[in-house]
Computed example of a mutant assay.
Amino acid sequence: MNKTGWIIYNGSLSGDKFIDFAEMLYKAAVDRNHTAKIIKNNELSTMLTKDSLTIEAETDVELPDYVIFTDKDLYLARQLELLGVPVFNSAKTIEISDDKITTYQYLAKEKLPIPKTIVAPKVFVRNNNISNYINLNQIVETLGMPIIVKEAFGSFGEQVYLIETMEELREKVDQLYGKAFMFQEFISSSYGTDLRLQVVGDEVVAAMKRTSNDDFRANITAGATMEAYTPTEEEISLAVRAAKAIGADFSGVDLLFGPDNKPIICEINSNAHIRNLLDATGINAADFMISYAERVINGGLIRE
């Protein structure tokens, strides 16, 4: 039976990479004889009344068999789920992945290797005396210096900071006061280098190594280079376990090289873009993602 699928992306974001991701998924769906449609999240309205909850659009819409959700519009994703539509990834997974603090909490619960992390306290009222807010000396004593300060919400490495001195640390904490952020130990053995493993279901379908010569972060958008990488069994197992810890059907799991080359989880991206991975490896993860969704909705695969 022909399947119908929506690929939803954020219509308010500029840049070709967002529509490119959607188009890669669209082509993979069409190649499997699905009737697919690319839809901007702002083309749909989440309608709630006393008697019903619906999805509204300018023209009448018939809900699809599945949705691949490349956006972070949790309310729309959850509305679709409440209407009985399988959404990949789920609203809960997107919510966990979008909040890096929550992600680390789920990973720590499963006893998976992560950088040692201290979460900054939640504040509501500005107090200009930072010493009354948090004991930075104790944090540095625990995590060392240099130290990583990372905002809970952010993309492409832009909200991650390497702090070298106490003065810098006080300035950064002052700048972030009122936001959700954390302090992390700096994994110096992975300076400017990390791994991206693309997980789909129970397998790693592609992997690449990213390297920067002039930045502690290895994000391609920040100028890092990439190359195909063959992960070890330990790295594969860890990436799959990390994805499962947040309930992800598919995700880009970033690993750091810890001491003695032991892998450490850096981040999990529930809507990781896959163009760079294709360019580096020749493997199109979209094909695996659509195949996975098809198996789930056909009843041949149980989502955990």
Rank of each mutant, 00 (worst) to 15 (best):
D287F: 15
N298E: 14
D20N: 05
N33C: 03
L74D: 03
D31C: 04
L136C: 12
I264F: 05
I55H: 14
V173W: 13
R32C: 02
R303I: 06
T281V: 07
G299L: 12
F257A: 11
T59H: 13
V200Q: 10
K109W: 13
E304Y: 02
T49S: 11
Y9Q: 02
M24P: 00
N10P: 04
R303K: 13
E110T: 04
F257Y: 14
N128L: 09
L76N: 09
I220S: 01
K100C: 09
T59A: 12
S97R: 10
V296T: 06
D260G: 11
N89D: 08
A180E: 14
I264E: 05
V200T: 13
D194L: 12
K179Y: 04
S291A: 15
S14C: 00
D214Q: 02
G252V: 15
D249G: 10
L301P: 01
G15E: 01
L82C: 01
E267C: 04
D98S: 08
L136W: 07
E167T: 13
Q198F: 13
A242S: 15
K116W: 11
V149E: 06
N42D: 12
E167K: 15
W6E: 05
M47R: 05
I147V: 09
V61Q: 14
A36Y: 06
A152K: 05
Y75S: 04
F156Y: 09
G258C: 11
L48I: 12
N219V: 02
Y133V: 11
L301C: 00
K40E: 10
G192D: 08
K111Q: 12
D260V: 13
N2P: 13
T230D: 10
K92L: 14
A29Q: 05
K122H: 11
D20W: 02
N132P: 01
F186Y: 15
I94P: 01
R275S: 01
N219T: 03
A222L: 13
E58G: 09
I283W: 03
M226E: 09
N213F: 01
T281K: 08
S270P: 09
F216N: 11
E158H: 04
S189C: 12
Q184E: 08
S188V: 15
D215F: 10
K92C: 08
H34D: 00
V200G: 15
S52P: 01
